[in-house]
Design a protein around this nucleic acid. Structure first.
Lengths: 198, 198
DNA sequence: AAATGATTAAAAAATTTGTTTAAATCAAAA
DNA sequence: TTTTGATTTAAACAAATTTTTTAATCATTT
């Protein structure tokens, strides 16, 4: 188990991250991954047995990334509602800015295979008894708190999902997009407070 | 050109709509479409020459659906800002409720092929000089109006994009989802007004 | 230097998938 | 009824892609 093994395995995984998240499972060819990794195609099967097994490894990582930010924040009873919203927007945008393909990749692949992928996270259970949901209920008891969860996520995540469309149709370029998303770190908490009423 | 032709051609197109929008181009096999349509595989090529040509027909339809609702509303100078937002939420949600896979399908395929698909719509041009953008600017001159466009779209469209995830992880079922989306027709205009400030 | 494990190149097997072909079937017209 | 052309089917084909195999090469360790 020299450093070479580690290096190659990691090179393949890193290439798989890039290609899978950019194209999705079905449109990705193992040849693309091998080329991106700069290794012989045989090595991919040598290390990971199959395209599907490699994909499952990457997908588990990506689901971790996508939900790993959210869980600790919404369940932390030590944070006020305002603090939670600020932290959600801030850390979510920071993370996804480094990985803009993440949301559309995760949500697309879940659409293609909901049952098998939903096992990795019990979102319903976690969210149902989360501190965040309780705090939203206290603040506004008239509207189902799930609405505000959808709004916070939508305002944070949707820009990334629509980015390819917006760029291709000249609404903004990548620089302006990053700019906008940094502005949104401050704006989303303000908007959510306004929506909740005071 | 009897009714048989029409029937079969339409059966194939309808099956293609279902499978393409559910799985995306790459993950769709022509055999899936044939099976869904209940016809022999050869007929697909007999009527549409190739998978790609069939896909282009469906994709053009779907892009029409996705943007066709938006354009007339945001460019109609006869509508007030409030009326525009109400109409956007209402007609968008009504349309997509009948076709929940539409947003993630269109946005995924655009990501996979931005240049070729972006030609169908000059969103940048239309939005830049739209009546809606001007009205938002008048109401709130401090924040780039694109933020509010992203918010309106995000709050309307994101729930559909996250639906497979939410359903698979038990946050809500299809009935509750439809319920929520109908509630949002009224709520989104209220929220957007609150965000804009008054 | 010998041995060991990692990597490559090349080929081939196996599988999947889009497309074509040729014959059969059907419906309408002569 | 026979003929004709369009429609449909079963089968095969062709191309792409994943996976496996084998032998050779390379790098590192003993």
């Amino acid at each position: 188990m020299g450093s070479k093994e580690q290096d190659t395995e990691e090179k393949i995984k890193e290439a798989a991250r890039v290609i899978f998240t950019k194209k999705g499972y079905a449109a990705t060819r193992t040849r693309d991954i091998a080329e991106e990794a700069g290794i012989n195609l045989s090595l991919l099967n040598y290390y990971f047995r199959s395209k599907e097994k490699l994909f499952n490894i990457i997908m588990t990582e990506k689901i971790q990334q996508f939900f790993g930010i959210m869980f600790p924040i919404i369940t932390d009873a030590g944070l006020s509602l305002e603090e939670k919203i600020e932290k959600m927007a801030d850390s979510y945008i920071n993370t996804i800015l480094k990985n803009p393909d993440l949301p559309i990749f995760v949500l697309s692949e879940i659409r293609n295979n909901p049952q098998s992928l939903a096992q990795n996270f019990n979102l319903g259970h976690v969210m149902g008894r989360s501190s965040l949901i309780l705090q939203i209920k206290e603040r506004n008891s008239e509207v189902d708190p799930i609405h505000f969860m959808l709004n916070i996520l939508g305002m944070t995540v949707f820009p990334f999902i629509s980015k390819p469309l917006m760029e291709a149709s000249g609404v903004f370029d990548d620089d302006r997009f990053q700019n906008l998303m940094n502005e949104r770190k401050k704006l989303i908490p303000i908007w959510v407070k306004a929506m909740l009423g005071h």
